[in-house]
Design a protein around this nucleic acid. Structure first.
Length: 456
DNA sequence: TCCTCTTACACCTTTGAATCGT
DNA sequence: AACGATTCAAAGGTGTAAGAGG
């Protein structure tokens, strides 16, 4: 609980600093991104968000919805989203909480979702919130539909990229900023593990309304091959209940269904449910304590740092990396933007404790570095090879040559901690990194598959 | 045996074309 | 002819349960 309150304090500070710094609305250094539905995200985050991924592709829920300010009204921008691994682990759901189940699998092809309105003037982006409703996640590494490919049972975090570019061709030479939000971190799953998350989704997702309403829910529950449950409830229902119990769905089969109570339970938790878990009900709690962090402060650090992807730019400016490791580098990057050609990156990469953990780090250095933006090299190289084709491919829907995500020069808009009371303002924030923040682990990622996709 | 993943299913919302009225 | 409102069917999103596979 202590760490939650720390988060809140910090985040409110960040918000205020952002706001005060935003006096110059059109100064690019003060572009701010605000996460809409922050409360909803927060609700999910507190339970440990799970995102279903399927072979044909599944939308996110909650879906990413942001509003942006501080853009130049007449300058054109491209806005993109990608997913970065939060750490190098694979997880499993065990005894009502997530546990580390081993090292992460090698990254699937990295893809980027480009908002369909891109490119559009700043005024367009600022006049209303930007929805990424149609972004889809898949676990199909051979996916041909341009969905973002993730591994199941891994943790990811969406990153938003704001790129000033007149067209998609010029994205790679453009100035851009990267934002992410701690509460959008999720675990990708092929089937829901945490019943609280399931219920929360059912209660909030209109498409799941059929599971929400009392009658339908009951009907639905027995829908498949299980009218027998009604006819002969003893056997079938018993087995259902058994499974239900074993999977800890305490409230699911119960009828009548009370949405309010359910929601309240989901959000607040009952005492019984809470006891075995962390005080704030985060299923991460146990696992984090056990595997990731030893103290609350480290929890804070971890969640803070899962953020922005800053770029690995060593391909062009290797010498610059020397300055990355120190927290002030973020501070100095107050400009928060860099051009592709000239900047030396901040390398956020992975939280210290996670990188340095005595992990079975086999292959991690080059293959599975979380929060790394390896595409820089790929892009440079590939664009030299096939510039025309590449740029053209930007406009294709599902072009396998997708260079867009291969940009370099990503900078950190820098992430702010969980926005607990409200939305999330993201700006460069010195001091967000804990002492000992580690910027290393900037190994080459050049073998990383070179086809991320734009989808719209 | 356990765990993860896939698939078919029923229910629901969203979308867009067709129709009608002004 | 142009525009807006309404209707309706198709498309697509949702979690569940059973079962396959490792």
């Amino acid at each position: 609980m202590q760490y939650i309150s720390e988060l809140r304090n910090t985040s409110s500070m960040m918000v205020s600093s952002t706001v005060s710094g935003a006096t110059d609305q059109y100064n690019q250094g003060h572009i701010t991104l605000i996460l809409e539905n922050s409360d909803l995200w927060k609700s999910f985050h507190e339970l440990g968000t799970e995102m279903i991924i399927t072979k044909p592709g599944r939308r996110m829920f909650p879906h990413c919805n942001v509003s942006v300010s501080g853009l130049l009204p007449y300058a054109k921008y491209v806005i993109m989203v990608d997913m970065v691994p939060v750490d190098n682990f694979r997880y499993k759901w065990n005894k009502e909480q997530w546990e580390v189940a081993g090292k992460a699998e090698p990254h699937p092809p990295c893809r980027t979702y480009i908002h369909p309105d891109s490119p559009a003037p700043g005024s367009h982006w600022m006049k209303q919130s930007i929805s990424f409703l149609k972004l889809k996640l898949t676990n199909n590494t051979l996916d041909q539909h341009g969905h973002i490919i993730l591994h199941s049972m891994h943790r990811y975090q969406p990153r938003f990229h704001v790129v000033q570019a007149d067209d998609l061709y010029s994205v790679r030479w453009s100035v851009f900023q990267t934002f992410s939000f701690a509460e959008t971190t999720f675990t990708s799953v092929t089937a829901y593990q945490n019943s609280k998350i399931t219920k929360l989704k059912i209660d909030h997702n209109p498409f799941a309304k059929g599971f929400r309403e009392e009658g339908t829910h009951g009907k639905r529950y027995r829908a498949n091959k299980s009218l027998a449950c009604l006819e002969n409830p003893t056997k079938k229902l018993r087995s259902t209940e058994k499974e239900t119990e074993s999977r800890s769905y305490p409230d699911f089969p119960r009828l009548p269904y009370d949405p309010q109570r359910e929601e309240q339970d989901a959000l607040m938790g009952t005492k019984e449910e809470l006891v075995p878990q962390d005080e704030h009900m985060s299923p991460w709690g146990g696992e984090q304590d056990q595997n990731l962090h030893n103290e609350t402060a480290m929890d804070f650090c971890s969640s803070e740092q899962m953020v922005p992807g800053q770029v690995t730019y060593h391909f062009y400016r290797p010498a610059e990396f020397g300055r990355m490791p120190s927290p002030p580098s973020c501070q100095d990057d107050s400009v928060d933007r860099h051009s592709f050609e000239s900047r030396a990156t901040d390398v956020a990469t992975v939280p210290d404790q996670e990188i340095t953990r005595p992990l079975p780090a086999v292959g991690m250095g080059s293959q599975c570095r979380p929060l790394d933006f390896s595409m820089s090299q790929n892009m440079s190289v590939s664009s030299k090879n096939k510039p025309g084709q590449r740029t053209h491919s930007l406009y294709g829907h599902y072009n396998t040559e997708q260079p867009l995500s291969q940009w370099s020069g990503v900078i950190s808009g820098q992430y702010s901690g969980p926005t607990y009371p409200h939305s999330h303002h993201v700006t460069a924030e010195p001091g967000m990194h804990p002492p000992g923040y580690h910027h290393g682990n900037v190994a080459d990622w050049s073998q990383y598959p070179l086809f991320s996709y734009s989808c719209w």
